[in-house]
Amino acid sequence: MLASFAAPSSDEPQPLADAPEATASEPDLNEVYIEEIKGVGPGCPAGTFDYTIAEDKKSFIIGFFELRLENPNPAGKKIQYTNCLATVKLHVPGGLQVSVATVNSRGYAFLDPGIRGRQTSKYFFAGVPVGNKLHTELSGPFDDDYDFADAIPFGSAAWSPCGDSAIFAIDSSLQLNAIANPNGVALFNLNSIDGRFEMVYQLQWQKC
């Protein structure tokens, strides 16, 4: 997962690095940064979840090496599910809020005819009941890399509490449905290049 902070505008969000320096009456955008990232869930057991925070603490990459499903599976289940809940601790100075602007999900899927895959992402801030939910479906036959791109409208975005640091939660889940072809072969979200599932995030900010 790669995330960068950007300011909303009438065109495209501008990188935080290009923002002017704060005055005494304005919040300092350079004080928005990532403090810590954790992951828990069946899709990211110990040793299969890693991350790197950039030197400027304004971007990060998370790797999910076991966030994947296969059919047939040893348990004989025709419908399978797995997920990983990643929590990102953000330092947000007074006078600012942050939210998700765009999301890209990248991976690989091989699905025999009749088998369906569904990837769902939920985003929310701790203590804020309203969040965002996005999902994409693939139907077999399918054998290719995929790159799902979603943009969240500015007016419907879920924002962090005003003027306070926040915990940003990202719940990424996969479902594989082989009811229509229980003996078919399927592999969902094992990236064909480096063996891990990747999600790219861009965050936006607003004054409050």
Rank of each mutant, 00 (worst) to 15 (best):
P15W: 12
D144E: 12
Y33F: 15
K57E: 11
Y201E: 15
S172P: 01
A126M: 05
Y51S: 02
I53Y: 00
N181H: 07
A101Q: 13
L134I: 04
Q175H: 09
K133C: 01
P113F: 02
V40M: 10
G43H: 12
L176V: 08
S172V: 03
F148N: 14
G107E: 13
I152H: 03
P42K: 04
L85S: 02
K122H: 07
F197P: 06
S121V: 02
I167W: 01
F124P: 01
L174D: 11
G76W: 06
G117W: 04
S160E: 08
D144R: 08
L176A: 06
L174C: 11
L190I: 15
S105P: 00
G114V: 00
A24L: 14
V40G: 01
S99T: 15
D143W: 04
P15V: 08
A22M: 11
F188W: 15
R196E: 07
I193D: 09
I115P: 05
L2P: 02
T82A: 01
G107M: 13
A46M: 02
N30D: 14
Y33R: 05
C162E: 09
P153V: 05
A126F: 01
F168L: 02
A3M: 12
L134V: 09
N104D: 11
P93S: 11
F154C: 04
I37C: 03
Y108I: 01
E26C: 00
L90Q: 01
K122I: 04
S4C: 12
L2I: 14
I179M: 10
N71D: 10
